[in-house]
Structures are given as C-alpha cells and as structure tokens.
Design a protein around this nucleic acid. Structure first.
Length: 190
DNA sequence: GGAACGATTGAT
DNA sequence: TCAATCGTTCCT
C-alpha cells in the first residue's frame, strides 16, 4: 500500500474531504498494523467560524497553516484527541477531520486499545478512531506521505456521498461540510 | 494570573 | 441528560 501523494492534499479542502471517503487510514505501529476505511469526514475552512484557524495562527493550530499532507492532532474536552489532515496550500489554515472508519485490519489490536469488543464502537467517532489506531499527540505535525501513519488510495469505486452539517460545533453549524458514505453502518452518529 | 470553554465519550 | 477533565485561548 502506497501513501497518497502531497498533490492529493494540496487541493480544495471540501473536495479533499469528499475524496477521502473510501480511502484507507493505515498505521504501522510497533504494536502492529491497523487499517480502516474512511467513511465520514468534516471540512474546516478559512473564514469558517468553527475552524480552529479562523482567528489566526496560534501555537496549537500552526500546523494547519503549514504544508498539506501533514497531521493535525489536537487535545479536547480534557481527555480526547482528534485527528485531521492538513489540506490546501501552505499559508491557508484548513484541514479535514476524520470522524469515522470502517475497521478493516488489526481488529484485535483496536479492541485492546479501546477496551471494547463491539465493532461499531472501535472507530465510530473522531476520538475513538484515534485511540483504536494508537494515534497520540506525538503524531501532530507528522508528514502523512512518508511515515508509518498514512492514507492509501481507495480500493473501491467512488462511493455515493451524503452531505450534511457538522457535529459538536456552535458557530458554523448550518454549513454543509460533513460528508459520509451513504448507507454506511460505521458513521459516528445514527 | 485567571476563567471559560471545547471539532467527545460513556454512563445514568 | 450529564459528568469527566485539562490544555488553549482570551481577557484583565
């Protein structure tokens, strides 16, 4: 499996969020490999009030303004981490949040890391998939086109995409920037 | 220096 | 429906 090249990420963020559906998130960690099919994403755009980068660069969000194809991992609610991929051109603070995966490989490792058995509880939610894949704050700013954590092209035909509003935000809650594979059983909310 | 809050999750 | 839990951001 080959990582998607930087050219994939260096495009319109909304387009990247849609085209990430069906691709494979891969982590070759010391504990073992995990693979999941990306089934749900959200786009966060410059000028979008819900975007961490909308009020300028800070120590936390600086990676969003850097080159595309890098990881933005942030800590939230005092206990969880979320994983994003940086998109668009360098200097533009945009990213795509990975919200849910369909578990493909390494299910027992995911179960061990999560402390749960049920399939839909392994990677259904942004903080859940981070835990299942062993992603930590150490992965923040890492290059997703060269390292052990990467995204591989979709092995499937382009899916039907459902477009709706994002979850867990206040400002910008009406914008149609959440995308998931229509009919997929592994999205984060019913 | 201090306070309010959050791109969530899991239990009640 | 609500508590857990703490780094980041913004205000004083």
């Amino acid at each position: 499996m080959q990582p998607l090249p930087v050219e994939f990420y260096a495009r319109d963020t909304t387009l990247v969020a849609k085209e990430l559906l069906g691709t494979l998130l891969v982590h070759r960690s010391p504990e073992g490999i995990t693979v999941g099919r990306i089934v749900e994403t959200e786009a966060y755009l410059q000028g979008d009030p819900a975007c961490h980068a909308s009020r300028g660069m800070t120590p936390r969000n600086s990676v969003m303004f850097g080159p595309p194809g890098h990881a933005y991992v942030y800590f939230t609610y005092g206990m969880h981490y979320c994983f994003n991929v940086v998109t668009a051109s360098e200097g533009v603070g945009e990213a795509v949040l990975i919200r849910a995966l369909e578990p493909i490989e390494g299910l027992e490792l995911m179960r061990k890391r999560r402390g749960r058995d049920r399939l839909h509880e392994l990677c259904g939610g942004p903080a859940r998939l981070v835990q299942a894949f062993g992603i930590t704050k150490e992965h923040n700013k890492k290059d997703l086109t060269t390292g052990p954590l990467f995204i591989a092209p979709s092995p499937d035909p382009p899916p039907d995409i459902y477009i709706t509003t994002r979850i867990g935000i206040k400002e910008g809650a009406d914008l149609p920037l959440r995308f998931y594979i229509q009919g997929n059983k592994f999205i984060s909310k019913k």
